[in-house]
Every structure is written in C-alpha cells, then in structure tokens.
Amino acid sequence: MLPKQETPGRFVIQDIKTGTYLRHDGTDLDHPYDDVDAVDEATVWRTLEHVSYVLWWYVDMYRSYRIINLDTAEHFVKDKNRGIPHIMAELLQPQGGGKGE
C-alpha cells in the first residue's frame, strides 16, 4: 500500500458571508465550533486533507465556508460535484471594474 500524500500547511475555516473564523469549542456536538473574529483565535489545521474532512463532516452544512491556507493565501471550497470530502480552489470574483459600474 502506498503512503497517503498529505498537503501540509496552516489552514483555517472562514464563514464566507460573515468573514468570521471557526474555533473548536471542545465538545463533540454536530457543529462543535464557535465563530471568532480573528485568525489568531481560530483553530488551525495542519493538513489540507484534515481540514477538508472537517469541512465536510463537522461544519454547518447550511452555511457557506471556505478553507484558507495561511501560508499561501489559497482559498478552497466544497466541490459538491465530486462529493465527500473533495474540495476545489475557490474562484474569486473580481472586485469592481466591470461593465455598468
């Protein structure tokens, strides 16, 4: 069996709508996270695979979240077309400068 490849880094989960981050509250609830305002208060995961698993299974499925790699500033979201626990790079919308603005 081949060893599982993991993508190391420092990863946090952010609520897309509010901009808050998730911090584990120490419980085993279905959504065991509190919202915090700063990255330095948030739970940091050490691999992309681990934080992806958390995003799929333990984070409120009715809200939109992104994973942020604090080392590279890459953003990831759930890849709903591929299913659990896949993620994909988030396609960020350009800010301003469009026609009609």
Rank of each mutant, 00 (worst) to 15 (best):
M1A: 13
L2I: 09
P3F: 14
K4C: 05
K4A: 12
Q5K: 15
T7H: 12
T7N: 14
T7M: 03
P8K: 15
R10W: 01
F11D: 03
V12Q: 03
V12S: 03
Q14E: 13
D15I: 00
D15P: 03
D15Q: 02
I16C: 06
I16K: 14
I16Q: 13
K17F: 08
K17T: 12
K17G: 01
K17C: 03
G19L: 01
G19T: 04
T20N: 10
T20S: 12
Y21C: 10
Y21T: 13
L22C: 08
L22V: 07
R23E: 07
R23M: 07
H24K: 09
H24N: 15
G26V: 09
D28N: 14
D28I: 10
D28Y: 11
L29F: 10
L29G: 15
D30I: 11
D30A: 15
H31M: 10
P32Y: 11
P32R: 10
Y33L: 07
D34A: 07
V36W: 06
V36Y: 06
D37Y: 04
D37R: 10
A38F: 14
A38I: 01
A38W: 09
V39P: 01
V39E: 13
D40F: 11
V44F: 01
W45D: 10
R46P: 02
R46S: 13
R46Y: 12
T47A: 08
T47I: 08
L48I: 00
H50V: 12
V51F: 00
V51Y: 01
S52F: 06
S52L: 04
S52R: 07
Y53V: 11
V54M: 12
V54L: 09
V54E: 15
L55Y: 05
L55T: 05
W56I: 06
W57T: 15
W57E: 13
W57F: 06
W57D: 09
Y58K: 14
Y58M: 10
Y58T: 09
Y58G: 03
V59D: 06
V59A: 05
M61E: 11
M61W: 03
M61L: 05
M61C: 04
M61Y: 04
Y62Q: 15
Y62D: 15
Y62M: 11
R63C: 06
R63D: 08
R63N: 10
Y65Q: 04
I68A: 07
D71H: 02
T72P: 07
A73Y: 13
H75W: 02
F76Q: 04
F76N: 05
F76P: 04
V77F: 00
V77N: 06
K78N: 00
N81D: 14
N81K: 14
G83E: 04
G83D: 05
I84M: 06
I84S: 13
I84N: 14
H86T: 01
H86L: 00
H86G: 00
H86S: 05
I87E: 06
M88Q: 15
M88N: 04
A89Q: 12
E90F: 13
E90A: 15
L92D: 03
L92Q: 11
L92A: 09
Q93N: 05
Q93C: 05
P94L: 07
P94M: 04
Q95I: 09
G98V: 07
K99N: 02
K99C: 03
K99I: 12
G100C: 00
G100E: 04
G100D: 04
E101W: 00
